[in-house]
Design a protein around this nucleic acid. Structure first.
Lengths: 233, 233
DNA sequence: TTACTTAGTGTAAAAAATACACGTATATTA
DNA sequence: TAATATACGTGTATTTTTTACACTAAGTAA
């Protein structure tokens, strides 16, 4: 640390768009701020990055502290550093998105701490205006995902481990905000060859039960030449 | 600036991959470092971001200081913040790429200053190992471009203002690193409807001269719903 | 005028995306 | 146990996009 010109230092943070899918709705995790500035406003979960951790570690830590979850698909999508985005001074923010499985929502206890009065799962369609420039960050991240999902199936982490093709289609429809054709959707999804058909059917529905499928990471990696995991910076 | 927890400050910089296309080769601008660490190594042009400028401004400034050019297509593509990427301490780097027109290369005087002994246009195919983790940054940026160009025509800034379709095809071939079919390439490129055919032919060739075309920003914006310019963070 | 070099062009085949409808299985209820 | 209601699961024809492929035309140079 001897030669670095320290007068160039800036405060910087990680903010996270944490997506969940519950009751047929796409939701994101927001905290309600308990401190000025923007006291009482909703904001993306975020935190300062320590000088002893990588940015990914910081993002993982925030995800963990916000949801108690680890090992989640997470992707850095943009860094925001406009002047004036924080009223108290220059702050650089690296933004990530993550997708998590909301089925055991009971296990997920959104944080309450001195900064956050409460944390809530907010349906994307009901999003209020957020603190700082977080609305803008959200829009940019959401657009990225919408874009990406069109050519790369990345949404499985949002579903329960076992899911039906109809559930998967509903998820796509919510993210893309349009109706999809059932037969074409299934054809295309199966053609990706990344799903494993199970010998099991869904339970507890009052109509013909659908087959369950699992996401197959091995096949995914084979076809998309990518691991579904953190990238190392 | 009153309440920000300053002990979270980090040093951070912008690095730039500046592409040029010259003599049928894709090149990037590198500086040869004149200072430790990595004295004598080649590195991406980069600099510290001041607390009084946005990240984009810093990137523009670096581009200007490295090449004397302004108003160039530039895109942020990733932020690198691994521990240990700088031997003297924690440094966060926001990476951009830019594409510039190398035809008036005489006007471009790569910087010489105390940090940089010299600046050179290095053919991508001859890239040496770079200082810090710059090789990795370069690979990531190059991959992004290669990816993007496949579905969005962004390479015009590399060509002279007026160019032939064959020149454009050569550029694509160099970036994608594969031969393309002439008829299919032209068909597809013209179908984008972003080129303006000029009433003019190339000069000074010892064979049949080809028609010249111009990139049409208006049409581009119309089709891709995007301005070819800086985004404001 | 001839030789040389690149420009410029079309069509057929294959692959991918889209549009579209009905019989089947299961649970519920009358 | 029969009727009803609900979502399941499937195939084909059409259109669009992508790919493969080769020759004549124009201009320069000798």
């Amino acid at each position: 640390m001897e030669n670095l010109p320290l007068h160039f230092e800036s405060v910087f943070t990680v903010d996270c768009i944490i997506f969940g899918f519950d009751e047929g709705e796409l939701k994101i995790l927001l905290i309600e701020r308990n401190e000025d500035p923007f006291k009482g406003w909703f904001a993306l979960p975020g935190y300062f990055v320590e000088n002893t951790e990588s940015i990914e570690s910081a993002a993982e830590r925030i995800l963990y502290e916000s949801t108690g979850l680890k090992g989640i698909y997470m992707e850095q999508f943009h860094t925001f550093g406009a002047l004036g985005r924080h009223p108290q001074g220059r702050v650089i923010t690296v933004a990530y998105y993550a997708m998590i499985r909301l089925t055991n929502q009971k296990d997920l206890k959104p944080v309450t701490n001195n900064l956050a009065k409460q944390a809530v799962w907010m349906p994307v369609k009901d999003m209020p205006e957020l603190a700082f420039d977080h609305s803008r960050i959200f829009r940019k991240g959401f657009e990225k995902i919408r874009n990406k999902i069109s050519y790369q199936p990345i949404a499985f982490e949002l579903l329960p481990e076992k899911f039906t093709l109809t559930q998967l289609q509903h998820l796509y429809e919510v993210i893309l905000n349009k109706k999809l054709d059932k037969r074409n959707f299934r054809k295309k999804m199966l053609a990706y060859d990344i799903l494993k058909e199970l010998d099991e059917k869904q339970k507890g529905v009052s109509y013909r039960a659908a087959k369950l499928y699992k996401f197959d990471k091995r096949k995914y990696a084979k076809h998309f030449n990518k691991e579904l995991s953190f990238s190392k910076d």
